[in-house]
Design a binder for these strands. Structure first.
Lengths: 218, 218, 218, 218
DNA sequence: CATGAATGAGCATTCATTCAT
DNA sequence: GATGAATGAATGCTCATTCAT
């Protein structure tokens, strides 16, 4: 529990959260990710959080507001580093090879995902059913990340490191591979034994060769 | 609506379905895939299907039974071709190169997915919340497909067409790429303009080079 | 089951019962007596009887009709012997002492009760909730038995064997004692060990002395 | 209605009952005793009580819980006086003759029964169908009363006031007679004219002579 | 800020009954 | 005579939300 709390504060850095509010968020995350948003009742959350039912609605006007309060900051935090640090680093030649960039990105975002696994699970699950979420997602990932990523791809294509195919295809393939790994690793078979270092390396290599095209041997 | 009916019969070939039963299934698929299983009420399904609410429960003891009745056959049908046709073809040298096999697989299953998109969407959405579904999935995909696929990978590895990494990594990468494509294409951005032929080709090439390793140029 | 059937025929001697009808009656008696009339569903009876739900309603227009069809004949049969045989015997001096009459009555009706225990249980349970049943009961027991019994009491009072108190008080006491015994014996503690002969004798003696009044020692 | 409320508080002295809760209990008692537990719907109770249906379930998790909340305290209250007062009085020679004890007991408990008639009716009706009720009954009546009563019987047998038959037979006969009277008086024919004093006296005399045996004349 | 009683609409499910076959 | 699919009202119960305290 104490383990969670710091994450909460870290994530919701804007507002001041009362003790009860934190407990509500933690309980909601747990229940939403285990049973899904609409299969979770507010009374269940209240019970788990040890607060009265009314308390939830004092802080979040509706159940959906609670969902958004949980899921929105995770999106913001997820994209933040892309915007600020990484892109700059690439353009500053910090990552001469795609490979270095990919490795950095994968490792960086993996830590974030692991820390916020249940919340991300909720996000992924609920996006299809809530237009507001879709909108938020498009804003954050769609624009912030996609546009920047496209530029990077073109940058590396110019350097001859990436095959000449549409940048959006590259985007899709890279994300499929990375998220395919992370989903398999942390959502589908989290209980299996994984050699994370080797798998990460293989995934990067797969993407690298896949993107290098026929002349990847050189 | 008539458009749907043939699919229903095709999918549930075992049982005899009454007219009302078919309508129930069609309505349930529509609602489940649009709003999610637990956000869909049986009364809503009944209304959409034009039947009395009691009629649903005459045929499906519980709402969950209805879900299973929809989702189970789709899994069975999905794996069927892998088991019978494709594997045989490969071993009979019908597909000399991995590429041919991949292309065949992707095209073959894509048709199925397109036809059963809403049902597959339901399956994907609900699997995390229903142990019975997880079990079914493991049985069908986990065993039927995984085991066969692993053999194929080893076969092509022996022929030197695939890099020497664990077969399960290959499995993961191939499926990530393929499903990443299909999900992006049909679930995330179905309304965008897609050059399917080109995208398919690129995806295959991406996988091919990714798996061929550094010597893919030869 | 064959064990039941003869009882059924015996009880419903008026009508011809089809095979299915018998099964319905047997199943209904079982369920009604175990769970009560309104806690028993017609579908449950149908399932237990191995017939279709509709079949019940072909023979009995409503669920209540089924109840009456079960319970009415048991009342008729219960009072029958009083009317015909016993009263005559008493008046013909077959039972010189109240004691003999009581013993005969208790034994005679006990056999009937044991045979029809579940049905009697249903009757006792449901009487308070169904005016029709109350009416039937008044007709049969209230008139047929009560009136005859009163005459007997007066007869024995004239002979000095019974204390001079209102005959209806005698009626109540005798029936309380007898049914108190039968209810304790067969409904409240059927699984206890009972020395039936001794208990019957004690009950009779209790009634005898109770009714004889202070001069019972003579 | 105000007439009821004091009884409610008196009966459920343990808990604090909200106003609505009292109304629910009162309505439930009325309906349960009139139509039986399973023929009474919660919506009916709610309507009669003038509360929302949900309110019932806030206070009583299930309909059965409501039944138990009504019926359990009546059992506890019913046996209480036996345990504390009467037994002590008898052993303290307050009742030198069985007759005095019987009279005291009958009068004392009759008042209670009259006050709680509908609740007792519910108890009697529902006991056969609810194992939990049976258990409660055994605990309270079976142990608390039976054991104490047996001791009293043996005490009076030693004094020669009661015939030498098994104490449990005495128990059964006494209770049959008393409850036979009360049931006839208040449940079967409540609308008839009763000379309560005379009937009570006759019943006591009946029991007295019945238990005194052949030498009751002395 | 927090409570928890109260709500009434809505839920999945069951019900007795009907009727075409 | 028997079936069982179909019904729609009713059931016990849960829901998100409100509000007086």
């Amino acid at each position: 529990m104490t383990d969670h709390e710091f994450k909460i504060d870290e994530l919701m850095d804007g507002e001041e959260l009362t003790d009860k509010q934190k407990k509500i968020i933690i309980s909601a995350i747990e229940s939403f990710s285990e049973k899904g948003f609409s299969a979770t009742s507010t009374s269940e959350i209240a019970k788990k959080a040890g607060v009265a039912e009314g308390t939830i609605f004092r802080h979040y006007k509706t159940k959906k507001d609670l969902l958004l309060a949980i899921v929105a900051p995770v999106m913001a935090k997820f994209v933040a580093p892309f915007i600020i640090k990484d892109l700059k680093k690439v353009l500053d030649q910090d990552y001469e090879h795609v490979e270095d960039f990919l490795k950095a990105m994968l490792e960086n975002r993996r830590d974030f995902l692991i820390k916020n696994l249940p919340t991300v699970k909720i996000l992924v699950q609920e996006i299809p059913f809530h237009p507001e979420l879709k909108e938020l997602f498009k804003e954050h990932i769609g624009l912030q990340i996609y546009e920047r990523f496209i530029k990077l791809v073109e940058y590396y294509q110019a350097k001859g490191q990436i095959i000449e195919i549409p940048a959006y295809s590259v985007f899709r393939m890279v994300f499929s591979s990375i998220f395919g790994y992370l989903i398999a690793r942390y959502m589908i078979l989290p209980e299996a034994e994984w050699d994370d270092e080797a798998e990460t390396e293989r995934t990067i290599q797969f993407i690298m060769h896949g993107l290098a095209g026929p002349n990847s041997g050189n």
